[in-house]
């Protein structure tokens, strides 16, 4: 199951606030940067955190999806994007309105850049979902002034994902026992077959949602009084330190981009600004700030244990 489990690692013990800031930093920077080098480094810097949180296996299932999507982006991009100076293959025919289809080196490179962006973003998000307790996340989001009810709905949906999966598996068994062959048949037959599973699943979920609503009301939901929180969003000094470093990383990244580094031009010929010494130092600083969340988390746990 790809869901949060408390693995008690230093990363899990870190307050959700710095983790959220850290993930947000990676996501924002991967949108700002265009250079494949910068994007690749953003992706690589998430790896030690995944290792430290001991969530390799769960992360891998997210990454499989990311790699699949990435490959798709590269293929589609190289097939439909005809800009670029270096033509590798050219079709012997023309398509009305598009001209002669061709695969260019630049189109492939730009596909790779976009895939790296996807990889970095998904890897960062997997750290968010795998190491922050959903209820903690909800509390932070509410603190950030997101509407409580929307946040609650999201959190309840995550709670019911495993339930829904079990429901679906059971209903498939029920209908197979009534002679349903899920694989075969023509399109019409297949749609019919899916209905036999989907209708009970949907109808049961609707019943379920009424019951959940009823149970929530019976426990004083919507009392009109401002909600309080059982768990304090405690920020120890080292959490604050981690938060500051995450924010500093974001700031530095924005600065790098404003100074013109991290940009990249794909068309007509691929190329970016030269990496001078300042750029290299700034980039190293950025990576160091991002990676430092790990030692800080380790330090926090050590202090807590002592």
């Amino acid at each position: 199951m790809i869901a949060y489990r408390n693995k008690n690692t230093a990363i899990h013990k870190l307050s959700p606030v710095p983790k959220l800031a850290w993930v947000a930093g990676i996501v924002v920077l991967s949108l700002l940067f265009d250079s494949p080098l910068y994007l690749a480094l953003l992706f690589l810097v998430t790896l030690p955190i995944v290792a430290a949180a001991q969530v390799w296996r769960e992360w891998a299932s997210y990454l499989k999806l990311a790699l699949f999507l990435g490959a798709l982006v590269i293929v589609i991009n190289s097939l439909i994007n005809y800009h670029g100076a270096h033509v590798l293959v050219e079709a012997p025919f023309t398509v009305p309105g598009l001209g002669r289809p061709q695969v260019t080196l630049e189109a492939i490179i730009s596909g790779i850049g976009n895939s790296l962006r996807l990889l970095a973003t998904i890897s960062a998000f997997s750290i968010l979902t795998l190491t922050i307790h959903p209820d903690d996340l909800m509390q932070v989001l509410v603190k950030l002034k997101l509407p409580y009810k929307s946040v609650l709905v999201t959190s309840i949906s995550t709670r019911f994902v495993p339930v829904l999966a079990a429901d679906a598996a059971r209903i498939v068994e029920v209908q197979q026992s009534r002679g349903l062959e899920l694989g075969g048949g023509g399109l019409r037959q297949r749609i019919r077959n899916r209905t036999a599973v989907i209708i009970p699943l949907l109808a049961n979920s609707l019943d379920r949602s009424v019951q959940v609503a009823e149970a929530m009301e019976a426990r004083a939901f919507g009392s009109g009084r401002p909600r309080s929180n059982f768990k304090a969003l405690e920020m120890l000094p080292l959490d604050v330190a981690a938060l500051c470093m995450a924010l500093a990383a974001l700031g530095l990244g924005v600065l790098i981009r404003v100074l013109g580094q991290g940009a990249f031009r794909y068309f007509p010929a691929a190329g970016g600004p030269a990496l001078d010494a300042t750029a290299v130092y700034m980039l190293l600083g950025l990576l160091l700030l991002l990676a430092s969340v790990w030692p800080v988390a380790l330090l926090k746990r050590k202090l807590q244990l002592d």
């Binding site: 949060y4 307790h133 959903p134 209820d135 959190s155 309840i156 995550t158 709670r159 379920r208 019951q211 959940v212 149970a215 929530m216 426990r219 004083a220 939901f221 919507g222 009392s223 009084r225 401002p226 909600r227 309080s228 929180n229 059982f230 768990k231």
Partner: peptide, 20 residues
């Protein structure tokens, strides 16, 4: 269908939080 959070302790606290 009557448990809305993901952890036992928080579940028990849910109603109390609603009362503020």
């Amino acid at each position: 269908n009557q448990l809305v959070t993901t952890e036992v302790e928080r579940e028990v606290a849910f109603g109390l939080e609603n009362l503020g």
